[in-house]
């Protein structure tokens, strides 16, 4: 459903993505792991054109995009079929939780207001926040804000959702509520590409894991094999490292 070939991206002389290939099938939940600075965020951002790749072909939902040469119109159309959940939520601070969700429907997709309202309320209900619909982001906890951001993402009925470390800005006691929502989405068959440091999530929710280091994919495979018998030494070193930090 989504396939990328040979994405390359540099910032100045710094090579951040060095020829990444990835294939996502419908219903896949793919966890992207990797040390800090390995290019995970950049990869997601290139897929949604928030960052312009230097090279690479994206095939998505039957369309092909030459990443560095995609028109504004094609970008806008592509974005309407996807959603992005950011590490720091990025809710619209001048809008209530409900308005954050309806904005993309009413303004982005020209849906009528009543219909958008119903869809948005359902989305908020799904993330357990229908009672916070009229709160502004700054009146919500981090975990609640991220759940609103997820409601905003699912309301537009995207074909895939990109998550960039959705829980790493949260206090440990708040990550659970966000992960639970993501787990539920996964169970319902939502296609998700999730950059995460949550090994538990990668192990139990994702069906595939991709391990990145130094701008390329070192190893990928179904999550059980990945965790039980990693092939690459770098993967093993990484897993040991987070194993240690989790044991602390």
């Amino acid at each position: 459903m989504l396939e990328i070939k040979n994405i390359k991206k540099s910032f100045g002389s710094l090579k951040v993505l060095d020829g990444v290939d990835l294939k996502v099938e419908k219903g896949d939940v793919i966890a992207i792991l990797g040390p800090s600075g390995s290019g995970k965020t950049t990869l997601l951002r290139c897929l949604n054109f928030l960052e312009k790749a230097d090279e690479g072909i994206l095939t998505f939902d039957g369309e092909e995009y030459d990443l560095p040469r995609t028109s504004k119109k094609a970008i806008a159309d592509m974005r309407k079929k996807t959603a992005f959940v950011f590490q720091n939520y990025n809710l619209f601070e001048n809008k209530t939780a409900l308005q954050n969700v309806t904005e993309g429907l009413v303004i982005g997709r020209k849906m009528n207001k009543n219909e958008a309202h119903d869809i948005a309320m359902k989305a908020l209900q799904k993330v357990g926040l229908s009672d916070r619909a009229s709160h502004y982001p700054q009146q919500l906890s981090g975990g609640q804000q991220q759940r609103v951001a997820i409601a905003r993402a699912i309301a537009t009925n995207p074909k895939i959702i990109f998550f960039d470390e959705p829980t790493s800005a949260l206090d440990p006691e708040l990550t659970g509520e966000v992960l639970a929502v993501m787990r539920q989405l996964a169970d319902e068959g939502m296609t998700m590409l999730v950059v995460t440091h949550e090994i538990g999530f990668a192990r139990t929710v994702s069906n595939r894991v991709v391990f990145m280091d130094g701008g390329s994919i070192v190893e990928s495979g179904d999550s059980r094999t990945f965790f039980e018998s990693p092939r690459e030494e770098r993967t093993r070193a990484f897993l040991r490292l987070i194993g240690d930090s989790m044991a602390e």
């Binding site: 949604n48 928030l50 806008a76 974005r79 309407k80 996807t82 959603a83 992005f84 950011f86 720091n88 990025n90 809710l91 619209f92 601070e93 904005e103 993309g104 303004i107 982005g108 997709r109 951001a149 905003r152 537009t156």
Partner: peptide
């Protein structure tokens, strides 16, 4: 205004001007 809100706008399907 945090730049992320602009990006969030694009991602939910708003144009730059919107």
């Amino acid at each position: 205004v945090p730049h992320g809100q602009l990006e969030a706008g694009y991602c939910v399907g708003l144009s730059y001007l919107q």
